[in-house]
Design a protein around this nucleic acid. Structure first.
Lengths: 329, 329
DNA sequence: CATCGTTGTTCCAACGTTGTAAAGACCTGA
DNA sequence: TCAGGTCTTTACAACGTTGGAACAACGATG
């Protein structure tokens, strides 16, 4: 592989002059510039990014720490983050934590400042003490704990409230929630939104209608739904804290011959592509994932350029996509 | 951030001795080793991978070039590749091509030997001439074109044949295929398997029952299914070349009040998690994605270590997961 | 006591790049 | 012609690491 040295020899100039041409430095004589460009072409020179970054004191990578790529929300987000990072000449290094404390700790530990210039984190279990970061970082979703790191995400309380309001406006009274979680920050906020919507409609908050879910996978939604259908007095609507739970819930309902939406209305959260094509298609809270990805990457870029580190809290927009899984009673 | 120099100063030894300790060199006096280890601990030293790799002439990264992370098959695969790469101390750099020729070319072009040590490719449109690679590579799926690069994947002909045989064994006679594609290697092979299964059962190959799909997204499956349902004599079963097409097809069928599986049996390919929870759940060809990821990474590791470059063609196992979308007529 | 091999440590160079400073070429106007 | 400036190019060092050679200390051997 050709190096600057090779190009320089071929063009009959110094290494630095070639470097200057490559980096678009203005003051290069037309004649030399032409010769260098020809030599670049002839050798097929490509800069050694490792060496360049070593010299420049950066790595050219940002980390994206997320639970699992097999969760559609994170897969979609990862794709958008990669695209956004390209704008700033960043490559993305994806670390999976599988939502475990150990996984998240080890991911964070591996993030030396040598490996990445910055990090986007989507933690689920981390404690305050764990956030000893050596690079600029931004949290996605919500502050699981009170920690001085910037954040990008939607207003989870308002979004959950909008979802439940929608159910209430359709005439549902006995509305369940699936996805309560002891440590997850977003879960607490969505529950808060659920509570608020019930309260403003003077509907009672019923303990047995709030079902926890540990992993937010389809299987968890199915299990939770089964337990709801086993109640003496089952719900007529259910708000799931993500689409996978909702898909699992709809599946469980179908297995019990409970019809969605006639017997049971279902709302999800995340607006996965999958939910547009399910039968019935799923009403879902739709965060603007592209906006989240861009905001996170841009924020890190600003942070990495200037050393100022004011905390930011970027609120991205969301909407409610109404589909077949919710109809008026 | 601490460097070897800092640690050396603190421990009162030379930089190289610290390097030796870090790299597990045997001949270090117990006393020095202890002091160095203490200093490493105290400074929280983490090696600068960029510098190490520059010196060692490697990058520590492999590229994974795929169409889109928002396609569940590739998202799941990416997660598994990341896990497999970790075993060899490799990080994974994901490049999305969106299945376009331009995207694939630019991804390949950006793969200088400085950026990655090796590459895993899942091309869909590349031509023979494009495969001028500067690093060891392996193709996933199938050789789109006849090119001297190793490959990892299942026997697509046999897999498709098994899927269609299954439909035939259930008594279906008019079996459609969705997913034909002019350039995609796997599409041709799956079509071949479809043909073979029909032939061995002495069923006619009917042109109008083979529907092309350009992007293998859910929307393409829905569109294709609609065109099939518009036929004067619609099929009683359909074999889709991936699960997304099948999900779209099932959705389109539902919109026309065609019942799956009673009126129409559907088989997919890829065995996405999504297909286990759809209603009805989807019968699907299940490649062993973990085996594919491991085989690809291991192959590249062998290739990167030793300079020998024998072509390999690794066939990974698959199975047919029979679910609700297929029943006997 | 000289020699040897083993063990342990250090010095130097190099990976490919770019910032800095300095040197060289060229032009302008007096 | 020369001083003073503007362009243009170069030499050198450095980023943090490791391979190799050189060197030093040591006990064992003859």
């Amino acid at each position: 592989m050709a190096t600057l040295k090779d190009v320089a020899r071929l063009a009959g100039v110094s290494v630095k002059t070639v470097s200057n041409v490559v980096n678009g430095y203005s003051f290069v004589k037309a004649d030399n510039r032409r010769r260098v460009e020809e030599a670049l072409e002839a050798t097929g020179y490509r800069p050694n990014l490792g060496a360049r970054n070593l010299r420049r004191g950066r790595t050219g990578f940002i980390a994206l720490v997320l639970p699992e790529l097999s969760i559609p929300y994170f897969a979609e987000l990862a794709g958008l983050v990669i695209a956004a990072a390209q704008e700033h000449e960043w490559n993305v290094l994806i670390e999976q934590t599988f939502g475990t404390l150990a996984g998240e700790r080890s991911a964070l530990a591996s993030l030396g400042p040598h490996l990445v210039d910055a990090a986007i984190l989507s933690p689920e279990a981390l404690q305050v003490d764990d956030f000893q970061l050596s690079v600029p970082a931004v949290l996605l979703g919500e502050h699981a704990v009170d920690v001085p790191i910037s954040r990008v995400g939607i207003d989870n309380v308002a979004a959950a409230q909008a979802a439940v309001r929608h159910l209430i406006s359709l005439g549902h009274q006995r509305i369940a929630a699936i996805g309560a979680h002891p440590h997850r920050g977003t879960a607490a906020l969505r529950l808060e939104g659920y509570r608020a919507a019930l309260a403003e409609a003077s509907l009672p908050f019923v303990d047995e209608l709030v079902v926890p879910a540990l992993n937010y996978h389809r299987a968890d939604g199915a299990a939770a739904m089964k337990s709801l259908l086993d109640l003496r007095n089952p719900p007529d609507a259910v708000f799931c804290f993500n689409d996978l739970l909702a898909i699992g819930a709809m599946r469980a309902a179908a297995e019990r011959f409970v019809r969605v939406p006639q017997d049971l209305a279902v709302v999800g959260f995340d607006n996965n592509e999958e939910s547009v094509y399910s039968s019935p298609s799923l009403t879902s809270v739709a965060p603007d994932k592209g906006a989240i990805a861009r905001a996170a990457v841009d924020l890190l870029h600003r942070r990495a350029e200037s050393r100022d580190s004011a905390l930011e809290d970027v609120e991205t927009p969301f909407s409610l996509q109404v589909r077949e899984s919710t109809v008026a009673r």
